[in-house]
Amino acid sequence: MENGLLEVRALACVRGDRQLFSDLSFSLQAGALLHVHGPNGSGKTTLLRAIAGLVLQERGEILWNGTSSGKEKDAFNRELLYLGHHYGLKLELTGYENLKVFANLSGAEISEHEVEAALRRFGLAHCVELPVKVLSQGQKRRVALARLLLQSSKLWILDEPFVALDAAAVELLLEVIKTHVANGGMVILTTHQAVAVEVGSVQHLHLGQ
């Protein structure tokens, strides 16, 4: 199905004994960006993880193209790229190997050249051969973000993607996000940084009020 559409209906999530949010509904069209706001502990990460299918919601539905994302898990996961607080990188492997593993798992055919190009775009040309454990926080984040360029997922869920990045990298990431949205992709992100995320149509969602 070409026209991606994410719909969240009456979503409620509980963490421990605390009700984080309830009766949350919104929908996201192709070519739109959702910026989730809220203070610490307001449930931003939980919301993002719930949409990705990592946390089971208490009530409500998450629909992808009209079908429940939980039922059509494989189809949904193919369109999904989730980057959380953890980078999901293996410290013993090089950046190149890490990206290759993800590409293989997602079933995409990616050439050596493309992986190197993605790393170079994020300014990591000189550390292709280094294991990730010797890289700095920002560089690790860059390696994780390089996946955005390699997988043709429609929906990006980015939890605090700007953390640990320097100004140049923030600019670059914004540009990558803009291109993705302009090409009909969808982005859901949270950030505490004062980053001007201005692309096509930006929706704002405020949690914890």
């Binding site: 990592l54 996961n77 980078y87």
Partner: peptide, 19 residues
């Protein structure tokens, strides 16, 4: 689990039991 790879494995479009 600790480095977040497991999350990513759960989100791969392949059956988790196979992984």
């Amino acid at each position: 689990y600790h480095d977040g790879t497991l999350e990513q494995l759960l989100l791969v479009p392949q059956p988790l039991s196979l992984i």
